[in-house]
């Protein structure tokens, strides 16, 4: 893959890229299908319910059935909606979600592109999705969805900053923005990961990440008890599915990114466990992060808008800045 990327873009190479992208899209779709199943099961168990059990063995085909239903549903566009933007919005939301996955390294050899500005690429693209959400909220011509969209914009700006600043410490320690370099900078024991040295950064990152995902307790843009469904009130059928898809692809992306940045990527937690393949370690950590996100959803109430803002600017941002300062001082004093 790396060699192909170095070569000139010919028709043949382009088709190979496209082919791989489609293969990967299906992997991601598979993940989303079963992440939803997993979420419903896990939350179901936490709430003394069974979760899906009917469609297929153990309800395994429930999400498939749900997606099918969404696909064959009538596609409604409100009469007073801004048609072009209304159609564009789900696509604008989804495309960056998928595109950011290109820079995630799963194992030393399994990755799509090793960009030397990988982290920057991720942060820059992922914030584009907000535009889709705001557009969707605006174009629907619905007051609830407009408020959802505006909330989303405010939240995005407030939390993108601590999110990016919180990982600066990691970048300083590993000396590169490339995600491969960052993983390689971490060792084969869990104390050599970025998790412990960058604890503050990790906590800020996790909180900001949950907020970026618009998940409980930061699910204000789609707070169903206030804004009915927020920015996607008017969406139905496959357009709605696109929003949902984007949300879960972001779960995939953030879980991967957390694994890569703080949990040592493919490295085992102890050096003696090195014989287990790196991909498995990656998946294990990844699943744990995903589980953590779902767990939060079953536990937390929703935070209020003003509290969300003040928390982001008054707590998370200073903490992230302190983290940079401490890291810099540490590097200056002990690593030089």
């Amino acid at each position: 893959m790396t060699e192909l990327l170095q070569q000139a873009l010919t028709w043949q190479n382009g088709l190979i890229f496209l082919g791989w992208a489609i293969v990967f899209l299906f992997i991601v779709l598979g993940f989303v299908t079963y992440a939803i199943y997993f979420e419903r099961k896990v939350i179901g168990w936490m709430q003394f319910r069974h979760g899906p059990t009917r469609v297929g063995p153990l309800g395994l085909l429930q999400s498939v059935a749900d997606v099918l239903k969404l696909l064959i549903k009538e596609d409604t566009i409100p009469q007073k909606a801004d048609r072009t933007l209304f159609i564009l919005a789900p696509i604008i939301t989804f495309v960056p979600a998928f595109a950011v996955l290109a820079v995630i390294p799963y194992t030393p050899s399994l990755y799509f592109a090793d960009l030397n500005v990988g982290l920057l690429y991720y942060a820059a693209l992922s914030s584009l999705s907000t535009i889709g959400i705001i557009l969707g909220g605006w174009a629907s011509n619905n007051k609830y969805s407009l408020m959802g969209g505006m909330r989303s914009a405010a939240q995005m700006i407030s939390y993108e900053i601590p999110l990016v600043i919180s990982v600066v410490g990691v970048v300083m320690l590993s000396g590169g923005l490339s995600l491969n370099t960052i993983v390689e900078g971490q060792g084969n024991n869990f104390w050599e990961w970025n998790l412990l040295p960058q604890m503050i950064g990790f906590v800020v990152f996790m909180i900001a990440a949950v907020s970026e995902l618009n998940r409980t307790p930061f699910d204000l843009p789609e707070a169903e008890s206030e804004l009915v469904a927020g920015y996607h009130v008017e969406y139905s059928g496959f357009r709605f599915a696109f929003f949902m898809l984007a949300e879960y692809v972001y779960v995939f992306a953030i879980a991967s990114l957390t694994t890569v940045l703080f949990l040592g990527g493919w490295h085992p937690p102890l050096a003696i466990l090195d014989f287990i393949p790196g991909l498995l370690w990656f998946m294990l950590k990844f699943v744990f992060v995903v589980f953590f996100l779902f767990w939060l959803r079953a536990t937390m109430p929703r935070i209020r808008v003003d509290q969300l803002m003040s928390f982001g600017w008054k707590v998370l941002l200073p903490l992230a800045l302190i983290n940079i300062f401490v890291t810099a001082a540490y590097i200056e004093l002990f690593l030089k």
Binding site: M46, Q47, F48, T216, S225, R297, A298, P301, R302
Partner: peptide
């Protein structure tokens, strides 16, 4: 009330 505030699980506990 907790459902209004955004916490989903207590609703199901209460109904149990």
């Amino acid at each position: 009330y907790l459902l209004d505030i955004g916490a989903m699980s207590p609703f199901l506990y209460a109904f149990r």
